[in-house]
């Protein structure tokens, strides 16, 4: 299960994509679908991707995160070690891409 929340900061200068749960299987596709819808509305806003409560991401989920991270000016919020490792992996992959 994955819960996807998009919050907008005051003035709309920044947006926060909060992900909670597993980014795997059908939820990876759902995240991709949500991102395709939301990306045009983002404009030049800074995007913060909050993965602190992501418990697992499979290859497809990571690919979606790489895609998001590569497309916009984004940064990760990653608290626990597991989320930190995920964020690091995504950053590396997007740089390689």
């Amino acid at each position: 299960m994955l819960r996807i929340t998009i919050n907008e900061s005051e003035g709309g200068a920044a947006k926060r994509l909060i992900l909670e749960g597993r980014i795997a299987g059908p939820w990876a596709e759902e995240l991709d679908r949500v991102w395709v819808e939301a990306a045009p509305r983002l404009g030049s806003s800074k995007l913060t991707i909050d993965v602190r409560d992501v418990t697992y991401a499979d290859a497809a989920g990571k690919n979606v995160l790489v895609k998001i991270f590569s497309q916009v000016d984004a940064e990760f919020v990653a608290g626990p070690l597991q989320a930190h490792d995920l964020a690091t992996e995504i950053i590396k992959k997007s740089q390689q891409a």
């Binding site: 299960m1 819960r3 929340t5 909060i18 909670e20 749960g21 409560d53 418990t55």
Partner: peptide, 11 residues
């Protein structure tokens, strides 16, 4: 403790 707080209600 094993479920993210945001998903616990759903669970």
């Amino acid at each position: 403790a094993a479920i993210p707080a945001g998903l616990l209600e759903s669970e």
